[in-house]
Design a protein around this nucleic acid. Structure first.
Length: 209
DNA sequence: AATCAGGATCCGC
DNA sequence: GCGGATCCTGATT
């Protein structure tokens, strides 16, 4: 009985993924694929347009969000969308997470996915920034390498990076002022520094990968 | 106006 | 204590 219901759900997820041409694992979704998934969910369950409230969020971002955070994006349907995403996630739990081949950023994520953080794991700011940088397909609009070999990167959209960091840490009041203060704490720790020629919003990992 | 530097203080793990 | 988050002053771009 239980397995029958689960089987139906898995089938629905499967057909939806084929229809939308997206991976089953939300962790792999780009922000565009997130929008696809939202539009499809809106259509399926006759919801109004909520996709705009989740602009610029990748599937990874969604996966790191709590139900409360979903409600903060959509007071009316946040819990519902969270539940639907959870169906996808439980499907993945049974069938295994996506491999780099499934990912749209397969070219970029050679070894990136191996040391990736998963939800509910504590994460350090420098690790978080690295994660964003390792996924240019998802995040190059807000943060990107200027010189990957030297570990030099530029924050293109400080507000967006701060928002993502605040979401991950569940700190809604996070902003670039506070995020950058935390980055500066890394100076004396020898984790991040300013490059030799100091430029606005440009930092450098002391130990490039 | 936004960013940068760094001191002080508070907080959760 | 560690790793921020928050708040702040003052300087720089």
């Amino acid at each position: 009985m239980q397995t029958l219901v689960v089987g139906e759900v898995l089938k629905d997820v499967d057909t939806a993924c084929k229809l939308l041409n997206i991976s089953q694992d939300p962790m792999c979704w780009s922000w565009l694929q997130v929008q696809k998934w939202l539009l499809w969910t809106e259509h399926m369950y006759h919801l109004p347009r909520v996709s705009a409230l989740f602009q610029g969020l990748s599937g990874r971002d969604l996966c790191f969000m709590s139900e409360t955070q979903f409600r903060q994006h959509s007071a009316q349907f946040g819990d519902m969308l969270y539940a639907h995403l959870d169906i996808w996630r439980s499907a993945v739990a049974m069938k295994g997470p996506c491999t780099p081949e499934d990912s749209t950023s397969a070219v970029e994520s050679s070894y990136a996915d191996v040391m990736t953080t998963y939800p509910n794991q504590p994460i350090h700011l420098w690790q978080f920034l690295r994660e964003l940088l390792l996924r240019p397909h998802n995040y190059s609009r807000c943060i990107r390498w200027l010189n990957k070999e030297k570990g030099i990167f530029k924050i293109e959209d400080s507000a967006h990076v701060a928002r993502l960091w605040g979401m991950r840490k569940n700190r809604p009041a996070m902003n670039y002022d506070k995020l950058s203060r935390s980055i500066r704490q890394y100076y004396k720790k020898g984790i991040i520094r300013k490059p030799d020629v100091s430029r606005r919003l440009v930092y450098q990992f002391v130990n490039p990968v």
